[in-house]
């Protein structure tokens, strides 16, 4: 009998790796940024499983929240300047 937490960890790790793969393979810049944010979100769930709630909070707020918006702000600037 496999413990439930291990199954959850397996699911989260697979999700993080798939999201990273999507972020690196996709042709769209926006999808890549969202994929990196998803990696951070999966990592923060993994931190909860690894008994690190402090780190999980920080990663969820900073890694997947603020960082993603920093990327979008800069991409918005670039689009406004006529870049692609």
């Amino acid at each position: 009998m496999i413990p439930l937490s291990f199954l959850l960890a397996l699911l989260v790790c697979a999700g993080a790796l798939i999201a990273a793969g999507v972020a690196l393979a996709t042709a769209s810049r926006a999808t890549a940024v969202l994929g990196a944010g998803l990696v951070s979100l999966f990592a923060s769930v993994l931190f909860v499983i690894l008994a690190a709630p402090d780190v999980a909070m920080t990663e969820a707020a900073i890694g997947s929240g603020l960082t993603t918006f920093l990327f979008f702000f800069v991409m918005g600037r670039i689009r406004r300047e006529g870049g692609k």
Binding site: A16, A20, A23, L24, R29, A32, V33, G35, A36, V39, S40, A43, L46, F47, L50, A51, A52, V55, E59, G63, T67, F71, V74, M75, I78
Partner: peptide, 27 residues
């Protein structure tokens, strides 16, 4: 990657990976 934004995205993924390793070592 040759695109600067995508290079930075890749760096943030590597950053997350380092954090996961460090927390796993402390568990």
């Amino acid at each position: 990657n040759r695109d600067l934004i995508r290079m930075i995205v890749a760096f943030t993924i590597a950053d997350t990976g380092v954090n996961v390793v460090l927390v796993a070592v402390g568990y």
